[in-house]
Design a protein around this nucleic acid. Structure first.
Lengths: 141, 141
DNA sequence: GCTTGACCTTCTAGTTACTGTAAGGCTTAG
DNA sequence: CTAAGCCTTACAGTAACTAGAAGGTCAAGC
């Protein structure tokens, strides 16, 4: 299997697969007489695993750990559980942060007159000129 | 005012301020006889504005636009409103994506036996070996 | 045999928004 | 005079790719 085929099957770009090889996330495959990389079904499995893990928000180093567990028949499932629940905590925190940002943005949208005039409470808020602003402090009325 | 003072007042790192100058986000300040940058209150205003905008999730180019509007007394508030409501839409989309990821992670955490055995449904799911998995497809029961 | 297009290869550089580090000059207190 | 604590520039590194250049290989069609 050449790289474009394994790319199609795994859902990753060929460039990404070469990149994963270059950072030792993936073992380098054998090469054909022409120098082309030759992949097998097991490689597709691993690349799918990596794609999924990345989609779940694991970074490359975390993928490295997950992959080691994946390959290790002596793993303990608690180790996997730990990695995933840590990630869950992390994503939860991120969502909360973004939620707070979203609420503030929504308030900004609400206070802008949205007309042809220059006067704009958003600008005032961002410049910190209305430090006591109900919007920023969330002290609505 | 030297850079460390304006940094303290604006809440940005001195490095960041120099960086903003280097990418023409900020006008270069006058220099003292010793070559040091000298800032004024207006610079603090602008840097606060930028810090706030960045915290709201605007990227550098969007900050450029916002800053231009901030500086322009002939601006129309609709322009500001547009930028902010676009950002709101963007953040909302991001939150929805993360929420989906969070739910999937939570399901993964739920299916892992979390013990000393190697058997782990998380690994199976990530490797795509349980393609019909209720977890992945979200077909709960 | 030749061309064309789709593959494949390596290498370098660009992306975002900084941050770290090095190497050196300025300022001020002791 | 020296030491700490500022300031300067310039270069490199971060994460995870992505784009592009320059060139080799392969299969099909004429």
């Amino acid at each position: 299997m050449n790289i474009s085929e394994v790319a199609k099957l795994s859902g990753l770009a060929a460039k990404t697969i070469r990149y994963y090889e270059s950072i030792d996330l993936m073992d380098p495959p054998r090469r054909g007489a022409n120098g082309y990389r030759r992949y097998h079904d097991g490689d597709v499995q691993i690349l799918c695993f990596l794609r999924q893990a990345r989609q779940f928000g694991f970074n490359i180093d975390q993928c490295r750990l997950l992959l080691a567990l994946y390959k290790n028949p002596q793993r303990r499932s608690t180790e996997v559980h730990q990695l995933v629940s840590d990630k869950l905590t992390e994503v939860d925190a991120h969502i909360r942060e973004l939620g707070a940002t979203r609420d503030l943005l929504a308030q900004l949208v609400g206070v802008c007159p949205n007309n042809e005039e220059a006067d704009c409470a958003i600008i005032d808020t961002l410049s910190g000129q209305s430090e006591q602003s109900q919007v920023v402090k969330g002290v609505e009325s």
